[in-house]
């Protein structure tokens, strides 16, 4: 009886959380199936008089949001930002999490500091640097600037994850004849996979959600991201396709969520498969 009750409670709670989390998204999806002129009503209703797929056609078509292109750019940029972050944060984090060495404190502070310097003021210097390097208006410059925002934090995060790995493991491996790097690669890294997935996701999302940097540093269709593409759709003088924007919002959110449904296994099951338990 008690067990049934607690199982019931967990579904009640799940439902509450999901309603709160998904209502705004539901509202977006729901309205994206309405013709534009039906969307804005005084009283919200749950009826659609003339359901339509027009908005989705518009969102995917070249006439409207040109979403496919921007979506690819966004996934590419955010994906690479995540990879770059993982590379730099797993190594840097290892040093910080594993060793006591001179300058550790000040490096830790430098990390936080460089993380802080984000936002409007670094745009002009970044624009200059990117112009000088000839990478303005490319996806590369976005990947690099996102790296500066994510690597410091993620190095921190990783150092925490390494802290959970017992030291004897590396020592044992090294006594068995592994080089230091081999021990890191074969023994330690597999144990922090959940950490890697966590920072990968984090940096993916930071890059994915950015608007300001992409706006300033890119302007062609070859580099523009979804966030910028969507913001452009709201016209000042020209007609704004509200329904189209909503459909675009749905179409940009879903692929990432699906991606995660696949990835979450690794995040959550990574540790259990590690040697630590064995």
């Amino acid at each position: 009886m008690r067990r049934l009750y607690s199982v019931g409670m967990r579904y009640v709670f799940l439902a509450l959380i999901m309603v709160f989390t998904l209502f705004p998204f539901f509202w977006l999806v729901f309205n994206s199936f309405k013709p534009s002129r039906e969307i804005f009503t005084v009283r919200p209703t749950l009826r659609i008089q003339n359901p339509t797929l027009e908005n989705y056609k518009w969102a995917m078509g070249p006439k409207g949001a040109n979403l496919g292109r921007y979506l690819l750019n966004s996934i590419f940029t955010a994906g690479f930002a995540a990879i770059v972050t993982i590379i730099f944060a797993t190594t840097g984090g290892y040093a910080l999490g594993r060793f006591l060495f001179r300058g550790r404190e000040s490096i830790a502070i430098f990390l936080i500091l460089s993380q802080m310097f984000q936002g409007p003021l670094i745009m002009v210097p970044w624009y200059k640097m990117a112009s000088a390097l000839g990478i303005i208006n490319t996806r590369l410059v976005l990947i690099l600037i996102y790296g500066t925002a994510t690597i410091p934090t993620c190095t921190w995060l990783m150092s925490g994850f390494y802290g959970n790995v017992p030291e004897d493991l590396e020592e044992a491996a090294m006594i068995d004849g592994c080089s230091y790097f081999a021990a890191f690669w074969r023994v330690v890294l597999p144990l922090v996979i959940p950490g890697i997935v966590a920072i990968g996701l984090y940096s993916f999302i930071i890059a994915w959600n950015d608007y300001q940097y992409a706006l300033i540093l890119t302007s062609s269709d070859f580099a523009k991201t979804v966030q910028v593409g969507l913001a452009e759709l709201i016209g000042f003088f020209g007609k704004t396709s509200w329904g189209g924007i909503m459909a675009s919002g749905v179409l940009t959110s879903l692929p990432v969520v699906m991606l995660f449904v696949v990835v979450q296994r690794y995040l959550v099951e990574g540790l259990t498969s590690g040697a630590v338990k064995g």
Binding site: G64, I234, G238, K239
Partner: peptide, 10 residues
């Protein structure tokens, strides 16, 4: 070019 709405872009 600042007309970023659909008809302006067109």
């Amino acid at each position: 070019y600042c007309g970023t709405s659909e008809p302006e872009k067109a």
